[in-house]
Design a binder for these strands. Structure first.
Lengths: 237, 237
DNA sequence: TTGAACAGGATTGCATACAATTTCATCGTT
DNA sequence: AACGATGAAATTGTATGCAATCCTGTTCAA
C-alpha cells in the first residue's frame, strides 16, 4: 500500500460507518478492476461477505449507484456499471471542464508538504509500473487515479473533489471497457509534467498540461470495442 | 405551475419510483423554502405523510444527503442542510467552474424549440415576480433556479446536469441563509441577457454573462448573517 | 430443433420488530 | 435557583419475514 491510502477515502463525513466501509471496499474493487463492468452484486452475498444484513448492503449499493459506479435495476438488482460510449464521452467532457480549473487552484495552494507527497506518489507509481503481476497492475491503475484525486484535494474545494472522485472512478470503468493499450494507466511522464507546472506555480500551464493529459487518455480509447457488454446494455435496454 | 415542471425532475433513471417521488417532493420543499435549513426530518413523520414505511423514507433521505441538501447525523437523524459560509463559497466556486462551460455548450446546441421554451420560461419568471404573496414568491425562487437547470439540460451532458442540479439546489439554501435583498432571486434582466447571448450563438459572451450573474448572486450574500443557525452547527459541531 | 408454458428456486422490495441511542422532563441535591 | 442524575418516551440502526418479481431448467407441442 502506498502512503496515500490513508488520505484518500475522503468520505464526505462519517455518517454510516458500516455502509461506508462496504462502499469503500466495493469502490476499490471496481476501480482496481477486481470487479468487471456488468458484474452482478447480490445483496445476500455481499452481506455474508461483510457479515451484515441486506439492509446495510442496500445502503452502500445505493451510494455507489449515486456515484454512477453501480446500476440498480428495479427487481433485478445491482450491477457494476457498464458505461456506454456516450456516457464515456460525457465523463471525459466533464473532466475537461473541471480538472483544469482544479489544477489552477491547486497551483495556487500547493504547499511544500504537498509537493513532497506528490513526489512520493510519483515514485510509487513508477515502482508499480515496473513491477510485474496482476496485483501490481491493479495497484498501478489505482495509484494513477489517486494522483488526480490528490490534485483535487489540494484545490481545497470539497464539492469539486467529490465530483472528481466520481469522475475518476467512472473513468476507470471506461478505460477497462474501451482502453486499447494494455498500459491504459495514463502516460506516466505526464503526471510528472503536471507536478512540474504546479511546483512552478504556473496554474495556466498546469491546466493546459492536464487538458492534454485527458485528451491523451481519451485518445487511447476505442469506443467501437463494445467490450464484452452484458448484452442487455450492449443493446441499450 | 410552469411548463418546465414536466421536464425538470430529470431523474438519473427511474429506478425506485416511490423513494424518488418522496425525494422530489422534499427537494422541492427545500428549494422553495417551505422547509428551512436545519429543520428535522423525522422518518416516521415523513413516512406517514407519504404512506410508506421508514425503509422507503430512509432511501430518499440518503439520496438527499448525497446531494448535500440533507445532513444525516448518526443516531440523531436527518436535517435540512445548513451550509456554512465556507461551504457556500465552495458551492459558488463550483458553479463558476461548471456553469460558464455549460453555457458555451448550450450556445452551440440551442434549437429553435429550446429558444421558445426559454422565452416562455422568462415570461413565467417575470409574471411570478410581479405577483404578490408567499406562494408566488416561492414559485419565483424555484423558477429562477430552474432557468439554470434548463441551461444545463440543453448542454446535453447528463453528468454536468446532475452536478448543476445539486449546486442550484444548494445555492437556494445558501441564499435562504445569507441572502440580504429580499428579492434574492437573481437580478431578472440577467437571465434575459443570457438568453440573448445564446440566441446569438455567442458562447463566449454567454459564459461571461453567466460568470457575472453568479458574481452578482454571491455579492448579494452576507456570510456574517449566521442566519438563525441551529446552534449545533453554529458552533461547528 | 424451436418455441411456448410452467414450476421451483433465487432475489429483490418493502414492512415490521427489536435493540441501541438520544432526547426530554422530572426530581432531588447543593 | 442552578445543576446533575435518572428514567420514560421518542427516534434511529439493523435484522428479519413475507410478498412480488425475476430467473432457470424442464416439459410438451408444433
Amino acid at each position: 500500500m502506498n502512503q496515500a491510502d490513508g488520505a484518500l477515502p475522503v468520505r464526505d463525513d462519517v455518517q454510516d460507518d458500516r455502509a461506508q466501509a462496504i462502499r469503500d471496499a466495493l469502490h476499490n474493487a471496481i476501480v482496481e478492476r477486481r470487479l468487471s463492468p456488468g458484474a452482478k452484486l447480490v445483496e445476500t452475498e455481499v452481506g455474508e461477505l461483510f457479515d451484515v444484513s441486506r439492509t446495510v448492503v442496500r445502503a452502500s449499493l445505493q451510494m455507489l449507484a449515486f456515484e454512477g459506479l453501480v446500476k440498480i435495476e428495479r427487481n433485478r438488482g445491482a450491477f457494476v456499471a457498464h458505461p456506454t460510449p456516450d456516457e464515456a464521452r460525457q465523463i471525459f467532457e466533464s473532466r475537461r471542464v473541471i480538472e483544469p480549473e482544479i489544477a489552477e487552484r491547486a497551483a495556487e495552494r500547493m504547499t511544500e508538504a504537498d509537493i513532497r507527497l506528490f513526489q512520493a506518489h510519483l515514485k510509487d507509481e513508477e515502482r508499480l509500473l515496473a513491477e510485474r503481476g496482476p496485483n501490481a497492475r491493479r495497484a498501478a491503475i489505482k495509484a494513477s487515479g489517486d494522483y488526480h484525486l490528490m490534485l483535487a484535494s489540494v484545490a481545497a474545494n470539497r464539492i469539486l473533489e467529490r465530483f472528481m472522485r466520481e469522475l475518476v472512478a467512472r473513468s476507470s470503468l471506461v478505460i477497462a471497457l474501451y482502453g486499447q493499450s494494455g498500459a491504459s494507466s495514463c502516460a506516466r511522464s505526464e503526471h510528472a509534467d503536471i507536478l512540474d507546472a504546479l511546483v512552478a506555480r504556473d496554474g495556466k500551464r498546469a491546466a493546459e498540461v492536464i487538458r492534454n493529459h485527458i485528451d491523451h487518455i481519451e485518445e487511447d480509447l476505442d469506443y467501437k470495442l463494445a467490450g464484452n457488454a452484458p448484452l442487455r446494455q450492449a443493446l441499450c435496454l
